[in-house]
Amino acid sequence: MSIISLTNVSKNYLLDTVEVRVLKDVNISIKKGEMVAIMGPSGSGKSTLMNMIGLLDRPTSGTLRLDGKEIRLTMSDKALAHLRSEKIGFVFQSFNLLPRLTALANVMMPASYAGTASGVAKEKAIEILGRVGLKDRVTHRPTEMSGGERQRVAIARALINNPEIILADEPTGNLDSKSGKEVMQVLRDLNNEGKTIIIITHDQTIADYCSRTVRILDGAVEERHG
């Protein structure tokens, strides 16, 4: 049973007066528990695809299903926000941690939007930080941590609402190779625990961690297994 399925999904943008077709009749199906790399050069449409899967964007045409639920063009921002909060954990290339907050507060932040009581969220955040190897970094601020540690805080943040899907956009892009390996190991461990992991990358060595690679070029998808 696929957790994400895109059927004939197209996305057009209006650039000045010209309509640009960024995605062309894309068909992808990702099963629960898969670890998938989406690869493509810049401008290929992979960011748009990621935004679509992450429910930050809506398709112009075609059908997007998340966990069997069809995402309609008419869905309210509020409904999409709730779905994001419940189903998807984001990991970004530039970490996007809030510099004023401690690691713990950063990890707890999405829980407040999911309506989790702060006491419960705190306990859970400490537990998750321990799981990604940051037990003794709980009260540190992002500026007091290395890049690899920051990205692990970001992964912990993605996990706080216990989503089905982790969506990582170039998660190792700002890291040295050692930290990059550590972060990929964390993601692989999560996959082994049953999370669906989707990684957007242009780096073949990252794609090699995944069981499946979806290549995108000029808005169209070609797939290769292995």
Partner: peptide, 16 residues
């Protein structure tokens, strides 16, 4: 702005 983007990505509604 980025913080707002992030908060929305992790589930903040417009109201929040």
């Amino acid at each position: 702005t980025r913080e707002i983007g992030l908060r929305k990505a992790v589930g903040a509604t417009q109201g929040a």
